[in-house]
Amino acid sequence: MAKFNLNINGEDKTVDVDPSTPLLWVLRDHLNLVGTKYGCGIAQCGACTVHFNGSAVRSCQLPVSSLEGSKIKTIEGLSENGDHPVQQAWLEIDVPQCGYCQAGQIMSASALLESNPNPSDEEIENAMNGNICRCGTYSRIKAAIKAASKSQVA
């Protein structure tokens, strides 16, 4: 066990865990941030996506020991009142079915729009291809990303 200082959603946190513990389980088991989901544990499904210094990454593959000095943003910190343009578009298009994968989808989508505010269909598909939705909400996810893109550009 060892102590690690993390910056999560703009707040400094200290956790005392095994250095190999992935960020996913630090968030869920130790920091009470359960919005980041466990889906596969091998970076194949995207349910655990967070922003690592602004980029979308799979938190199940990020050992806590590699995080000192970096800024982590989770779904809980994406906006103060759930009103990030991507979240608003998700509500407007009413994207979720079961909802379990959606936090990961939203984190991937918001990172995409941060780097590419007006993505093409192909760019959306490429950026989102690592996020599985078993319910099959892909059409709505794409529509919501386009709606968020428009609202940001406008």
């Binding site: 919005g35 994406l78 509500l91 909802g99 936090a103």
Partner: peptide, 8 residues
């Protein structure tokens, strides 16, 4: 539940 879902 949508608001809860999109805010984690």
């Amino acid at each position: 539940d949508a608001k809860k879902i999109v805010t984690g």
